[in-house]
Amino acid sequence: MVSETPSRFMNRSGDASIAREKNGENAEIFISPRFKSAAALAGWDEEDLIIASFVVEDTPERSSSKRRRRSNLLFKSSTPPSSGSLRRKQRVQQSSIRLPVVDLDKVIRHEEERSAEKKKKKREIEEKRIGNDEKKLSEQNSDSVVLPCIDKLRDELSCAICLEICFEPSTTTCGHSFCKKCLRSAADKCGRKCPKCRQLIGNGRYCTVNTVLWNTIQLLFPKEVEAQRAASVNLKGKETPSPRNPPNQRLRSRNRETAAFEDRVQREDLSRLLVSEERSERRRRGGSMRLDQDRDAALALRLQRQEFASAFGATTATSSSSASNLSLARANLRAMASRAVRR
């Protein structure tokens, strides 16, 4: 592209009429459409346009900018127009409308600035498009005033059984969606038919989560989902402590009852932690909701702190973990002391 331009210059310096013809032929490429539209607004005809382009080309720093712009344009024409370029076009048109007296200097500088700005933005967006977009969306919707139809959406996306925002929605064969849990208990207690239309529900089909819907809900109602998740985690932690046992086998000589209690409390905390960790892990894999991760991390930290506090807050004699910690500390001290003695 760069090698082409000098030849054109030479052409023009040779015979103006030939150059004019040539340029008239491919004016589409030679003169940028923006420039053309601005010129048309000013009431210029084809000839004036070409002359003006010469003027622009002849001034050194402008010509360089022009060349760059043209190369940009050529590049753009080969690629399908992205939304960014479309927007730019619209902007430019607006600006040209705003400036009925075409001050080329101004327009070009303006466009330069605009394009630089846009390019920067575009690069940024390309760098972290998905994450950024989602973040924006969640930010937009977290205050839930932005969307005028948010109430309708809430109605639409809430489960008919618990009347809350669907948590892990599951869609029946007849097309109705409910929380997975709600649908399961409805099928267990009220027979295998859709609560909304009474059609039969297929075997086991109601156990799968409608991923698209679930992601949509998580994007639209992050707060509600988080609240429900917290509630369910709490319930889980209370009702069914996980069977996984932490390696905590140093409490043989301890009081049996208190040890068992301590163990259970710890296990519950751990299970809660595990659940939240699993969730965050899954979400990370799904590549969504950095906000949620942060919240999960905060929750995990809080739980850990609680655990820590409970371990040390409890009487030192009975609590196994604190005892083990103490013994560890003692061992460390002993080791340090021995090292010091050896020296």
Binding site: A160, I161, L163, C182, A186, C190, P195, K196, R198
Partner: peptide, 8 residues
């Protein structure tokens, strides 16, 4: 008999 949990 035709109660449904979706009814309010």
């Amino acid at each position: 008999d035709s109660w449904s949990p979706a009814l309010t």
